[in-house]
C-alpha cells in the first residue's frame, strides 16, 4: 500500500505525514506524530480512551481514518494545556482524583472540555450524559464528577475576573 502525504492540523499546528490510506487517526497521532496521550482501550469504539476534539466536537480517533480529517482542527489531550499551563479541566482531574490510573483520563477530559465549552453550568444529569460514552475502571466516577465540578468553578472564577465590571 502506498503512502500518501497527508496534512493534519493538530493542536494548532500544521503537520505533514506520509501515511497509508488505512491509517487511523489514533495511530497517526500516536505513532506518526508522537502524541501518545490519546489511548487505545478497546477495538470496537466502545471505551472513549481515544477521544479527541474535531472542530470542537469530541470524537473517537480509533474509528476515524486520518486522511479523512485533513483540514479539520484536531485537539488532543496534549493540546488542552501543557505542564506549565494546565486547562482548568486538567487541573480538576489532577486535583480531585479524577485520574487514578490515568489511562481513560485523556478521553474523559476531552469529553468534559467539549461539554463545558458549550455548557459552562451543566446539571449532574448533563454531566453524566456527556461522559456516558467513556468508560473508567478505577474511580467509580464519583471523583470524576468532582473533577468536572472543580473545572466548572475554576472557569466561573476565571470568567468573573475577565468580564469587565459593568455595574
Amino acid at each position: 500500500m502506498n503512502k500518501e502525504l497527508t496534512h493534519l492540523r493538530v493542536n494548532g499546528e500544521e503537520r505533514e505525514i506520509a501515511i497509508t490510506p488505512n491509517r487511523l487517526l489514533l495511530d497517526a497521532l500516536r505513532e506518526d506524530l508522537g502524541l501518545t496521550g490519546s489511548k487505545r482501550g478497546c477495538d470496537d469504539s466502545s471505551c472513549g480512551c481515544c477521544a479527541v476534539l474535531i472542530d470542537g466536537t469530541p470524537m473517537l480517533s480509533c474509528v476515524a481514518l486520518a486522511a479523512s480529517y485533513e483540514g479539520r482542527e484536531i485537539t488532543t489531550v496534549e493540546g488542552l494545556g501543557g505542564p506549565g499551563e494546565l486547562d482548568p479541566v486538567q487541573e480538576g482531574y489532577a486535583e480531585m482524583g479524577g485520574a487514578q490510573c490515568g489511562y481513560c483520563t485523556p478521553g474523559f477530559m476531552i469529553a468534559t472540555k467539549a461539554l463545558l465549552d458549550r455548557n459552562p453550568d451543566p446539571t449532574m444529569d448533563e454531566i453524566r450524559e456527556a461522559l456516558s460514552g467513556n468508560l473508567c475502571r478505577c474511580t467509580g466516577y464519583m471523583q470524576i464528577y468532582e473533577s468536572v465540578k472543580y473545572a466548572i468553578e475554576k472557569l466561573r472564577a476565571k470568567s468573573a475576573t475577565q468580564a469587565p465590571a459593568t455595574r
Binding site: R30, E31, L35, T36, G37, S38, K39, R40, T76, V77, E78, L80, G81, G82, P83, L86, Q90, E91, Y93, A94, E95, M96, G97, A99, Q100, G102, Y103, T105, P106, M109
Partner: peptide
Amino acid sequence: MAMTDARAKVTGLGKYADDLS
C-alpha cells in the same frame, strides 16, 4: 493530596508501556 504523577497523566505526557518505542 493530588497524586504526584497526576500532572503527567492529565497532560498526556506520562508514558504507559504501549506509548514507548
